[in-house]
């Protein structure tokens, strides 16, 4: 089997991450429970991790995701390596649910509380 290495991409990609301006208008209110399911169903977790924690294949996008307008704009028309999700396959409401899920994620423990991360 062959693969292409995405290693070391995350930091590289963040450097060129989009600075897309948020669209005017309020976000539709999202259902975090449904968003959690969609995050898996639509494959977001593949690159961003099940808790949006990020890694080599995609940056961290939770627990405080970028504003909804910028979020949608990026998912629909990514400027980097991320594959585009058009409205044909994911609706705005579904994106709102995903956004709500990401916003609902717990804050991580502080580095100081994990001894091995200080060694």
């Amino acid at each position: 089997m062959r693969f292409s290495i995405l290693f070391a991409m995350a930091s590289a990609l963040l450097a060129q991450a989009p600075g897309s301006a948020p669209k005017a208008g309020a976000a539709p209110s999202g259902n975090a429970q449904n968003g959690k399911k969609l995050f898996v169903r639509d494959g977001c977790y593949q690159c961003h991790g099940l808790q949006g924690q990020g890694g080599a294949a995609g940056p961290r996008i939770g627990p405080r995701p970028i504003a909804f307008a910028a979020f949608t704009m990026y998912v629909r028309q990514p400027s980097g390596q991320m594959p585009p999700y058009t409205s044909k396959v994911v609706s705005d409401q579904e994106l709102a649910d995903i956004h709500a899920f990401l916003a609902s994620l717990p804050q991580p423990p502080p580095v100081k509380s994990i001894p091995a991360l200080n060694q």
Partner: peptide
């Protein structure tokens, strides 16, 4: 970054 998803 390593702390995100710590308890996942």
């Amino acid at each position: 970054e390593a702390t995100y998803g710590w308890d996942a």
